[in-house]
């Protein structure tokens, strides 16, 4: 009896809170029929915005996957970092989780904006950071930095350093040891962290909005386009792009589930 009640209640909450809203987006996207959806999605500004989102996602994911794995290795294994320093860095890694994306964007504007010393210098050299692609990439890097680290570090801790030491004793140096011994154990966690990073890159809004200035055909991304469409009461067009993004997220979610099951096996 109790059991039925609790299960029913949970299903109800999930339905109301998670399922119905997603369905409503899909419905909204097709308010003006298939052609309305298609028009909303293939507008030149929508295509450009999706392209920008894609570029940012690829660059940020590659960079953070590399640095995330390296930092995890150092934080778990390195003897050249003091214990105190490691602990401090370990807690600093989480900072982007605690920082509002808007504030993340603001930081970059404050450090590299056209009015700052550094930004002015780069501007004179012809490199725009803020209100241009580099700033948007940096903002996304900041926001997604902890994801890979947080996935990989626990696995490294769990597998311990003995297999790596065994490889050292058999004459393998760091490079060989990493690729032949460490990587096979952590790869599924890295994949999982990367998927999370991609999802976050696609969805990043606040930080990018602040840094990009949301300039049409220049720095507009998919999410900031949705925002602008809503502000302009162009709901059908907004729904089309939002549905594309939501579909991407759901696909990533499925992939995440799969990666998680692989992670548990290995």
């Amino acid at each position: 009896m109790m059991r039925r009640l609790w299960i029913g209640l949970t299903v109800l909450v999930f339905g109301l809170l998670l399922v119905i809203p997603v369905i409503r987006i899909a419905q909204g996207a097709f308010d003006a029929g298939w052609s309305g959806f298609w028009r909303g999605l293939t507008r030149p500004e929508a295509l450009h915005a999706l392209l920008m989102t894609g570029i940012i996602a690829v660059v940020a994911t590659v960079v953070n996957a590399f640095f995330g794995v390296m930092l995890s290795l150092y934080l778990v294994r390195a003897t050249w970092l003091g214990r105190r320093l490691k602990r401090l860095m370990n807690s600093l890694v989480d900072l982007p989780f605690a920082v509002s994306p808007v504030i993340g964007g603001l930081m970059i504007v404050l450090l590299l904006g056209p009015d700052t010393a550094l930004g002015g210098l780069l501007g004179r050299a012809g490199i725009d950071i803020v209100y241009a692609l580099p700033g948007m990439v940096i903002a996304t890097l900041f926001v997604t930095f902890p994801l890979v680290v947080r996935e990989v570090m626990p696995v490294l801790q769990e597998i311990g350093s003995q297999q790596e030491e065994a490889a050292h004793m058999m004459g393998a140096y760091a490079w060989t040891t990493f690729w032949r011994v460490t990587w096979p154990s952590i790869r599924w966690s890295v994949v999982y962290g990367v998927v999370l990073t991609v999802a976050r890159c696609l969805g990043e809004f606040g930080a990018v909005l602040v840094v990009s200035g949301n300039i049409l055909f220049k720095t507009q991304t998919a999410t900031t386009l949705v925002y602008q469409d809503v502000e302009n009461f162009n709901l059908t067009a907004a729904n089309a792009v939002a549905l594309a993004l939501a579909a991407g997220s759901v696909l990533l979610l499925l992939f995440m589930e799969w990666a998680k099951s692989r992670k548990e096996v290995h």
């Binding site: 003995q162 297999q163 065994a166 004459g171």
Partner: peptide, 20 residues
């Protein structure tokens, strides 16, 4: 000399076999 160059065989307590 780093461990790689010492020419020593080491058997670890939990064997540390490569699982994969």
């Amino acid at each position: 000399l780093p461990p790689q160059e010492r020419g020593i065989g080491f058997v670890f307590q939990n064997y540390a076999l490569f699982k994969h």
